[in-house]
Write a protein that binds this DNA or RNA. Structure first.
Length: 267
DNA sequence: TTGTGTTTTATTGCCTCC
DNA sequence: GGAGGCAATAAAACACAA
């Protein structure tokens, strides 16, 4: 058995580590080189590294006693063992950070995919709402027109306050039923076959109001209140306060208003 | 063989804790 | 104030393509 010394010249042949490894495995030349290198940096043997790795797995911090024991077992300076553990902790930390970064990135990608899907679905639903709203409007107008043709002269509006002079002239042909005191419902002049207050308003909620074309006299007041939205288009800010039914907070498709503010609404 | 990039060992300086 | 840890860095050792 070869008796070999560590860098400090101590005989290490009796320690467990050196008893464990066979000099023939690493070759005599290699061993000789290992033992007689000058003060140059020398790499630890694979066995030494293995041994250190095992110990690192058990505990990545090094108490003084353990450091001395390991140094003895490996035939190294305690300082070398300490340095190895220090560098090993640094490597572990780097790897750990890389893994954390990858995990976070995967998580982000997954969330982003979900978000993109929801955005697409939301756009689709908004388009659908628009189409259905227009259909409803056209249907409602058709019902009103048929009533119009059967009705006698409408008389003065009940509540003319909200209409401008010019509007009053135009609405003289619009029945009270449709627009009590004011009306902006125009007609076939528009390319779409009619003006859509919805688009002007930037709010589609009113499209889901109940069909008011056929209601009793007792319901007229409520109905007329609602129909005012068809005839008068206050500024959006006013609308929110004065007409809760139109307020943006009352119809935001389940999304909080602040979210909608940033959405690219098509109208 | 050599140039170059990567890995490993070791040092330095700063910080924290006892 | 000394011991030990950590980040930054130097430098040797190693791997590998051209």
């Amino acid at each position: 058995m070869v008796s070999f010394e560590d860098a400090s010249g101590a005989n290490v042949s009796k320690n467990p580590f050196f008893q464990a490894f066979d000099p023939h495995e690493i070759g005599e030349e290699e061993l000789d080189e290992y033992l007689h290198q000058p003060e140059k940096k020398r790499r630890l043997t694979t066995e030494q590294v293995h041994f250190l790795e095992k110990n690192f797995e058990l505990e990545n911090k090094l108490e003084p006693e353990r450091k001395i024991q390991l140094a003895k077992d490996l035939g190294l300076q305690p300082r070398q063992v300490a340095i190895w553990f220090q560098n090993r902790r640094a490597r572990w930390k780097t790897k750990h950070l890389e893994k954390e970064y990858e995990d976070l990135q995967a998580s982000y990608n997954s969330l982003k995919a979900d978000c993109d899907g929801l955005l697409k679905e939301n756009d689709k639903l908004k388009t659908e709402v628009l189409v259905l709203t227009d259909k409803l409007l056209i249907k409602a107008r058709g019902t009103q027109n048929s009533k119009l043709s059967n009705a006698s002269s409408p008389g003065p509006p009940e509540n003319p306050v909200a209409c401008s002079k010019g509007e009053e002239e135009r609405i003289s042909t619009v029945p009270e039923d449709v627009c009590p005191g004011k009306s902006e419902i125009s007609d076939s002049d528009s390319p779409n076959g009619g003006y859509s207050p919805l688009r002007e308003h930037g709010d589609s909620s009113y499209a889901f109001e109940p069909d008011l074309s056929d209601s009793s006299q007792d319901e007229d007041y409520t109905r007329n209140e609602n129909l005012q939205h068809l005839c008068v288009f206050p500024k959006l800010e006013e609308t929110r306060d004065d007409y809760p039914i139109l307020s943006t907070s009352s119809c935001h498709f389940g999304f909080p208003p602040e979210d909608q503010a940033s959405w690219p609404w098509p109208y």
